[in-house]
């Protein structure tokens, strides 16, 4: 029983970490330009396709390449679409990203067909190890490690470098940041690039998990990430991260512990929870007071 408990906790931590990263990748961009980018899903998908197609060349090629693809796509979206919509409100931006997401999915369908593509990406991680009577998925441990390292790196970047500081300032108060002399285009591009790196990490974890990628690969996690970011407080970088983590953690635990006939409804419980949170803390769990969200 305790073994099972620990096992489910590790799995939930890993699910939370993945979703936390995904939510963070959305929150980073939102903080700066008020865009909740639904098309983050297609960045994840592109990066995952890249992993699948290039895995046989070796991980040391496939992984950097998949990151490159994610960053490039992220920047491309910014320059081709979102940079032209600076004065639009968040709702319009969300719809635009929705449209972009739909569009790219169809492009993937045309390019790679509707069927999933498979490859044994990092199949070594798909094993289960037994440790003191507790069976633990190697991938869960790897996910938690990857997320931890990325967050540490991001934290150091944001707090120790000038560019990071500028990004933090822009995310907190974009208008003032510009007035102080922080170049808008550069921090926005930076936020998209970082968001791309996080998306690549999410893509890696998910691809190892499933080994199969289709045109709508990134959609499910992006929806949950968006939801998580909003309930955590998408206005704050830490809010998105925490909200994403929470949703992933809770969903995973519900999936494990709810009886079969109820676990079908696990997403429904999470969504009800979401509505509840939004009702009492409309600006997010981590944001003090009501209605401070600048949306």
């Amino acid at each position: 029983m305790t073994g099972q408990l620990i096992q489910s906790l590790v799995d939930a931590l890993s699910a939370g970490a993945t979703l936390g990263l995904a939510a963070l990748s959305i929150g980073l961009v939102f903080g700066v330009i008020r865009l909740a980018n639904f098309a983050q899903a297609e960045i994840i998908t592109a990066s995952a396709y890249c992993l699948i197609f290039t895995w046989q060349l070796g991980w040391f090629i496939a992984v950097p390449l998949s990151m490159l693809v994610a960053v490039a796509m992220s920047l491309l979206m910014e320059f081709a679409v979102f940079s032209r919509m600076r004065s639009a409100n968040p709702a319009t931006l969300l719809i635009a990203s929705f449209g972009l997401s739909f569009l790219l999915q169809r492009v993937y369908e045309l390019m790679f067909s509707n069927n999933v593509r498979t490859a044994p990406v990092a199949s070594g991680l798909a094993q289960t190890v037994e440790f003191a009577g507790v069976r633990i998925q190697l991938l869960s441990v790897a996910t938690i490690t990857i997320a931890g390292l990325l967050l540490l790196g991001l934290h150091l970047f944001l707090s120790r470098t000038s560019m990071g500081l500028q990004l933090k300032a822009a995310a907190a108060d974009f208008r003032t940041a510009r007035l102080v002399g922080i170049p808008a285009g550069r921090v926005i591009a930076l936020s998209f690039a970082l968001s791309g790196i996080l998306a690549a990490a999410v893509a890696f974890v998910l691809t190892v998990q499933s080994g199969a990628v289709g045109p709508t690969f990134g959609v499910q996690i992006t929806i949950l990430a968006l939801v998580g970011a909003v309930i955590g407080g998408i206005d704050k970088i830490s809010g998105s991260l925490a909200g994403g983590f929470l949703v992933g953690f809770v969903t995973s635990l519900l999936a494990t512990w709810l009886p079969q006939e109820m676990s079908n409804f696990k997403d429904a419980y999470v969504f009800v929870l979401v509505i509840g949170v939004l009702l009492f803390r409309p600006s997010g769990l981590l944001i003090k007071g009501r209605g401070v969200a600048r949306t």
Partner: peptide, 13 residues
């Protein structure tokens, strides 16, 4: 009661 992005997410939920 909700506005903006929050309303979007809640209706989506």
């Amino acid at each position: 009661r909700l506005n903006g992005l929050q309303a979007g997410i809640a209706t989506f939920a």
